[in-house]
Computed example of a mutant assay.
Amino acid sequence: MPFLRLPPEILRQIFSEIGSSFFREDLGRLTVCKLWFEFALPTCFKSITLSQETLRSLVTSGAIKGLSPLKDGLETLDLEVRGYQSCLSTSYPQEYAQESTSLKAPAPSGGPADDPVKTWIKILNNDLTQLAIVAQQSHRLRILRIRAWRSRSPEPLDTPQDYLRLPTMQAFLSVENLSVLVLDLSGSFLVSSGQQGIGRHICPAIGAVLRTLRTLHLRMRSICPDVLKPRDLNDGLRLSVVVINLSLTTDLPGITSAAHSTRCGSQGGGLLQLKAEIQEQAEALAAL
């Protein structure tokens, strides 16, 4: 029997075994024929890794709004954001410069032009928000990994820029039925944009997805025990692996001192107290 005349359920299983990496290595492998393409495309989009550059290309092309195969088949999403310096050191799409100009607010009369870093932050978070909408609509999505490197200012003596907005990251955490969540956000504090109350930090949003998770890995510059406080538990927890790293990486040249997470909010206490509080909450979680 010719291969493509096999029953559809068997073809889907075969293409699933082939895996998305096979097609991403050479997109020409998608174009054998129309029927082949119908099975190969969802497999190609089963697992994707996006940088800020590839995400920008998807948004400017308009493709991200019409990616139904992505929404229908996406199971694993890896997002790697390397900060503003990466934008300058790589061949960033030409469309970035065009949209950067359109997003700039008019400068006050006689005032300085908009900060290019702030413009980049605005564009990046707009792109991430669109990606989060796609993730929310991807009902097969089970694995979400996000890593953010530190973003340095164009001026060598300036302090590193924080660029991730809290509402943007909270949008990713509204994805239903995640089983694996990996957040390495040691490169940027989450900017709350003036939010008040419980929404000022991301930890409660992480706690809210604990009910479906099996694996949780966290490393953030600001953290508290709320990450391990589940909500709306109806049928118990499925968690089997929890890793919380309080040691932060330092990828800036010339800086060799150790860096550690701090507690969310204005409450005092150092690293040892933070570690003890998280450990205590972890023990309470394990007892559920």
Rank of each mutant, 00 (worst) to 15 (best):
G197I: 07
A205G: 12
F172S: 06
C224Y: 02
Y84N: 05
I202C: 04
S21C: 05
P225W: 04
I10Y: 08
L228E: 10
G73H: 12
C264K: 01
R145I: 01
L271G: 03
T129N: 10
L190G: 01
L74K: 07
P112M: 14
S91V: 14
S193Q: 14
L181N: 02
L27K: 06
A258Q: 08
P167L: 06
L288I: 15
L271Y: 08
R200G: 00
S151V: 00
K34A: 05
L157S: 15
K71P: 01
T129F: 05
P112T: 10
I64T: 08
A40I: 12
P93I: 10
G194V: 02
E283R: 13
A132K: 07
L30M: 12
A132H: 02
A107E: 09
V227P: 04
Y163P: 00
L252Y: 04
G269T: 06
Q279V: 06
S257K: 15
S193G: 12
L228N: 03
S102V: 08
S257Q: 14
H217Y: 12
I14M: 03
Q98N: 14
Q196S: 06
S179W: 06
S61M: 12
R263Q: 04
L103I: 14
I14T: 09
T43F: 09
I18E: 08
P154F: 07
Y96M: 10
K104T: 10
K34T: 05
A132F: 09
P8Q: 10
T256W: 07
G110E: 09
A258V: 04
L70C: 13
R231K: 12
R221M: 05
F189V: 09
P253N: 06
L79C: 06
R152C: 12
T262Q: 15
G207P: 04
S102K: 15
P108N: 09
E9V: 11
Q273L: 14
R147P: 00
L218G: 01
K229T: 07
S179K: 05
S266N: 13
S86M: 12
F22M: 08
P7F: 06
H201C: 03
S109H: 15
L157F: 15
L35I: 10
S193D: 15
K118Q: 13
K229E: 07
G110A: 13
T31P: 00
T54D: 01
